[in-house]
Write a protein that binds this DNA or RNA. Structure first.
Length: 284
DNA sequence: ACCCCGACCTGAGGGC
DNA sequence: TGCCCTCAGGTCGGGG
């Protein structure tokens, strides 16, 4: 499910229920996701000071000098069940019967405002408790490339990151040390928008192409954010709404269908074991 | 230092 | 109906 637009959509939906709120009750129902999950007692009673995002990680700064790191993996999502009728103590919360827990509901965070449930069938997601002072040197975070929507991500920066790389540009866009947040959907979509063939060796892109590609990545991600991300199969906003960017796909998941620009059939191939889609006429 | 591949998981969908 | 195969929005560690 989650590339930058879906992760940011999730963060935006969670923030009003978490920022400034105390985790009155925490349940951890799975011993490990990608890594062992923190004990509920270490999180319960803490207040969330701030909820921010870096790459595809959602980070909750807690009031005990720890940060809760959340990653949605392939199939992770949050559901929000707001309480009705104002603030409550944990005991009172049980008086508000939210729907029964579902299969793969691995963590439940309850504040005075809502119950937030993390569901992840494939368990590629991640919940980690990290000392806040050590966050930027944590192995998961210290080698990350630039945020694609930051002003500092420019054609020159991309070209420098691609220098000497012989791998095709498409899987390279999904390399977190080059740029973060771009996954399998938005890599194909951005290359289409830039008119670049996904098989071109990354290091061979011209300065002009890098500049165009950076502009396309920003445009595609911003448009996806504006439409609430992409809903394939099961991705939902924490509110339960679907995203709509899947209606805007130019190439992703459209093998054999006509290019919206030139009518040529969209092609599909595999790069690094992931599907790539492109138009052989519009992308050179 | 790079690059590729398998591994980690469950579930949906298609073919037989 | 069921079984078996493939594929799915991500990342990491090992080996070449």
């Amino acid at each position: 499910m989650p590339e930058l637009p879906e992760v940011e959509t999730t963060r935006l939906a969670l923030a009003p229920h978490l920022e400034g709120q105390r985790l009155a009750m925490v349940q951890i129902r799975v011993p490990k996701l990608r890594q062992p999950t923190p004990a509920a007692e270490l999180l319960q009673g803490r207040t969330v000071l701030r909820l921010f995002r870096r790459a595809k990680y959602i980070l909750a700064t807690l009031d005990d000098d720890y940060t809760l790191l959340i990653h949605l993996g392939m199939s992770g999502r949050f559901s929000v069940f707001p309480h009705t009728g104002g603030a409550h103590t944990p005991t009172q919360l049980t008086k508000y019967p939210h729907p029964p827990l579902a299969k793969h509901d691995h963590a439940i965070l309850t504040t005075g405002l809502a119950e937030l449930r993390f569901n992840d069938p494939r368990r590629f997601g991640l919940l980690l408790r990290i000392p806040t002072h050590a966050l930027h040197t944590h192995p998961l975070l210290q080698n990350l490339g630039p945020e694609p929507l930051d002003a500092g991500f420019t054609g020159a920066v991309l070209q420098a990151a691609l220098r000497g790389k012989t791998t095709a540009i498409k899987p390279t866009l999904m390399n977190n040390t080059v740029v973060v947040g771009v996954g399998n959907i938005y890599a194909s979509e951005s290359l289409f928008a830039a008119g670049i063939n996904p098989s071109v060796a990354a290091g061979e892109l011209s300065k002009t192409q890098c500049t165009r590609l950076v502009a396309s990545i920003k445009k595609v991600l911003q448009q996806a954010l504006a439409t609430g991300g992409s809903t394939l199969r099961d991705f939902r906003h924490p509110t339960g709404e679907a995203g709509h960017f899947q209606d805007e796909f130019r190439v992703y998941d459209r093998a054999g269908e006509p290019c919206h620009t030139c009518g040529t059939a969209i092609l599909q191939a595999t790069h690094a074991q992931r599907s790539t889609y492109w138009c052989p006429v519009c992308q050179k």
